[in-house]
């Protein structure tokens, strides 16, 4: 094990499930024998505001937040939010984003437009970019609510952690009745 700490940022809109996803990531890294820290914001921003969670793992982790500009992996639940937080990444970071848009208030009111070329803009800066049709794949897996798990699968492929730890974390964190669909969704994401 080297001393490098791996920095993951989960970004999206309050209420989208970033908290649970970051929980599963942390559990996986602990099971894999790493030190883990994570940080997130509850409260006001969870009412549909912009949210970011930080998860870090390595031999020993100090700060619970990712130092600015040192993000290794961006796990985006929504396009505009994924784009907003790009400055937290370093130039060679990997980016996995749900192909999903949630219009912010000014767009709902018709005062601003939701940029339609965000995926291209991200790809032009971060060649290691994957756009995932989470909703569609999750429906195929059996439940559109498992979209986050599809993304998690895709993210897992970009981290050097044995599959058994991911599966063990899913078994621990996902309610029994939803487990089968989520394992399927995870595998579909991992295959991307």
């Amino acid at each position: 094990m080297n001393d490098k700490v791996t920095n993951i940022l989960l970004v999206g809109v309050g209420g989208q499930g970033t908290l649970l996803a970051s929980e599963i990531l942390s559990e996986t890294f602990m099971l894999a024998g790493f030190d883990v820290k994570k940080s997130e914001i509850h409260g006001m921003s969870q009412r549909g505001g912009s949210v970011v969670s930080h998860v870090r793992f390595g031999r020993a982790v100090a700060s619970p937040t990712v130092p600015e500009g040192e993000g290794d992996v961006l796990f985006g639940f929504e396009l505009l939010e994924a784009y907003r937080y790009l400055p937290l990444l370093h130039a060679g970071a990997k980016v996995v984003v749900n192909d999903y848009r949630i219009p912010p208030p000014s767009v709902l009111l018709g005062q601003e437009v939701y940029p339609d070329d965000l995926a291209d803009r991200i790809r032009s800066r971060f060649p290691d970019f994957l756009l995932v049709d989470g909703l569609h794949l999750a429906s195929e897996a059996g439940n559109p609510k498992a979209a986050n798990t599809v993304l998690l699968g895709a993210v897992s492929k970009r981290l050097e952690i044995a599959e058994e730890h991911w599966l063990a974390a899913l078994h621990k964190m996902v309610p029994a009745k939803a487990l089968e669909v989520n394992i399927r969704a995870f595998q579909m994401g991992r295959a991307l």
Binding site: G14, L80, P104
Partner: peptide, 9 residues
């Protein structure tokens, strides 16, 4: 970018 403040449900 368009900001995303919190909003009532």
């Amino acid at each position: 970018l368009p900001p995303r403040p919190p909003n009532m449900c």
